[in-house]
Design a protein around this nucleic acid. Sequence first.
DNA 1: AAAAATTTTTAGATTTACCTAAAAATAAAA
DNA 2: TTTTATTTTTAGGTAAATCTAAAAATTTTT
Lengths: 220, 220
Amino acid sequence: MQSYTEENYLKTIYHLAEKTINVQTNAIAEQMQTKPASVTDMIKKLADKGLVDYIKYQGVTLTEIGKNTAIDIVRKHRLWEVFLVDKLNFKWDEVHDVAEELEHIKSIELIERLDEFLGFPKADPHGDPIPDKNGRFAKTQFIKLIELKIGDQGTITGVTQHSSAFLKHLEKLGLTLGKKIQISDVTDFDGSVEILLSDKQVNISREVAKHILISSNGKN
Amino acid sequence: MQSYTEENYLKTIYHLAEKTINVQTNAIAEQMQTKPASVTDMIKKLADKGLVDYIKYQGVTLTEIGKNTAIDIVRKHRLWEVFLVDKLNFKWDEVHDVAEELEHIKSIELIERLDEFLGFPKADPHGDPIPDKNGRFAKTQFIKLIELKIGDQGTITGVTQHSSAFLKHLEKLGLTLGKKIQISDVTDFDGSVEILLSDKQVNISREVAKHILISSNGKN
DNA sequence: AAAAATTTTTAGATTTACCTAAAAATAAAA
DNA sequence: TTTTATTTTTAGGTAAATCTAAAAATTTTT
Ligand SMILES: [Mn+2]
Ligand SMILES: [Mn+2]
Ligand SMILES: [Mn+2]
Ligand SMILES: [Mn+2]
C-alpha cells in the first residue's frame, strides 16, 4: 500500500517517462512543486519498495509494479473526471483539482462500480485514454494541430494542457472535443493559425495550436 | 483548512458529544483507535485553532466553528454513502469505510452538486439525517426497538450500529429501513424480541434490539 | 582537458501525527 | 479521610515528508 504522496510521485514519474526514458530529479521536483532534495529522498524510498529502478545521478525508471500502480492511479483520476463532467455537470476546466484528490481513494470495488456506472468510458473529458481494470488502453496516435498544413482537416480529440485558463480559452473559441476543423491559413508573421469551424472561423496563437490534438481524417 | 486527521477528531468529538456534554480524552482515544496521550496533543492543537474549548482534565466541547466543521464532515460522509448505495449499488453494510475516506475531499462545489445529483436526500442508508448545506437537519425523535412493548407497532427508520456484521444480520432477517413491524412477544428468559413482519416472524436478541430505531405509529 | 555551469546528493532541521513510560490530577472505595 | 483506582497530562522519542545550505558528481563550454 502506497501513501498519497508516493502515489503522486509515481504518477508524475509515469507522465514524465512518456517524454524521456530516464526521468530526472529536477523534472520531478518541478512537476511536484517541491525541492530536488525532497525528490531524492522519495526516490530512494520508492527504489527500496521496488517501485522504481534508480542509479545515483542517472535518474529513475518505473519498474513493472511501479508502472502498473501509476496506471491505476491515472485510471482513477480519469474516471473521476468523467463522473464530475457527465454526472455532476462540471466543466472540463473545473475537474482536475478535485480528481487529484479523488484518485487516491483506496477501493478497487469503488472504481470498478464507478467504471460500470459511467458506461466504461474510453476517454476522459480532455480526450485522454482511460486504462481498463487490467491497465490496458489504446495508445492513441494523434497529431498536434500545429503540425497541420493549410487545407488539412480533422477532429479535435485531445489537449496536452489541462490548465483552467487554457481550457476556458478553447471553450470560448468553440474548440471543444469532437469539433471538426479545417486549417484555412497559417500566418507567416507569428505562426498563428486560422481555423474553419462548421459555423465560424477562429484564429489561435501558435502556443495554443501546440496543445490541441487532432485525429486527422486524411489530407485536405 | 483542517487536516484529514483534525477532521476525524472533530467528527469523533461531535458524535461523542451527542451522549455527554464534556467529551473525555479516553473516550476519544478509544473511538479513534489511538492513545490518550495522542488525543491530548491533538486537543491542544484544536483548542489553539479555536475549534474546541478545553480545560485540562475536564474534557472538551466543540466551539461553534468546530461544531459546524464537524457537521459538514458528517454531511459529506452521509451524502457519499447515499451515492454509493443509490448509484453504485453498494449494500448498506459496505459503504462506511469508503465514505470514511471520501468525506475528506475538499470541494464545496463537489458536495453541493452531489447533493443535487442525489435529489437532496434527507437520510443516509442507515437512516441517519443528512444536514443541508447550512448544517441544519431535523433532530429525529426515534425510539429504540428494545423499549417497545408487546403489541406496539412501528417502522424501522434507523440503526445505531454500523458494523458490517450487524447490518448483514439485519438484512438476512429482512429487517431493513422502511419495514413495518409489530412486537409479538418478549422472552422473559433472555429478553429476546419476537417481531411480526408483513410476511414472516423473526426473533432477535436483546443486543440486536438495542440498535434498531423505530418511528412509532402509536401504541398498539 | 580545464573551467564553468548544471544537476544531484548529503547533512542537518522542521513539522505533523504518532508512540511509551512515568508523573500528576481527579474520582471512587475503604 | 486516607488509600486505591482511574483518567489525563507531560516528557522524551520515532517516522514520514518536507526544507535550506553546502558538497559532490555530471555535463557543457571554452
Ligand atoms: Mn494526486
Ligand atoms: Mn484529464
Ligand atoms: Mn474519516
Ligand atoms: Mn451512515
